[in-house]
Nucleic acid binder design. Structure first.
Lengths: 108, 108
DNA sequence: TAAAAATACTCCATAGGTATTTTAT
DNA sequence: ATAAAATACCTATGGAGTATTTTTA
């Protein structure tokens, strides 16, 4: 699992479309396809239901989405935090992506 | 920034020794050196003070260490969470790596 | 010197692209 | 017939190894 793959996954999961995700990420469609395939193989689960033209997140995909967002949020924070700014500050993020699922993250 | 690099960085930061980190990670010493160098270039900061035989974490390195641990913890949780187990459960982790720096992370 | 990191170089695995095929609408 | 993902194939980049040099304790 690499952050590059999670960024691709997140984009696909939001758009529910490999082609458009590829455009936005400046990848070819097959590159996106390959990244998702690798993720699915590593995790041993399907992340998307392939319904012909339509795709949908599986349960595992929904879960990965939450964790991906968390990791990518932290990556972003890391980039600003490590490369400069030493003023004391923090962040609180709360998300409820689905009923009964709650993520709270405090960093200070 | 990729998780692979953060794992390497974390190991080096703990051992404060590129050679031993390489052994543990099954990398060559130069591979470890290259990964750290890439990270430093991407972040635009030195992560270690090179003091001849000894190395030490810089301030930026200390900061990256905290974030790396967080991301790697989440990665680990993702692997178990996405690949199976649907029993409701959660985790709370609290670390105080340095005076005045506190990380609380709740996931449930 | 000795011990450890940096560097020069080489090589190969894999990430990505193009073109095509498959599949469901 | 169309739109989108999977697949086959090829290429090139960059990640990793070996060997060597540099550094400083």
């Amino acid at each position: 699992m690499e952050l590059r793959q999670l960024k691709t996954f997140k984009t696909v999961a939001q758009l529910l479309n490999f082609n458009r995700a590829a455009e936005i990420l400046n990848y070819s469609q097959s590159a996106v396809s390959a990244q998702i395939k690798l993720l699915e193989e590593e995790l041993g689960v399907k992340l998307f239901e392939r319904l012909g033209k339509r795709i949908a997140l599986t349960q595992a995909g929904e879960t990965l989405m939450r964790y991906s967002q968390k990791m990518l949020d932290i990556e972003k924070e890391t980039l600003t935090e490590v490369s400069g700014w030493k003023e004391p500050h923090g962040s609180i993020s709360v998300r409820i992506p689905q009923r009964s699922e709650l993520i709270i993250c405090l960093l200070f």
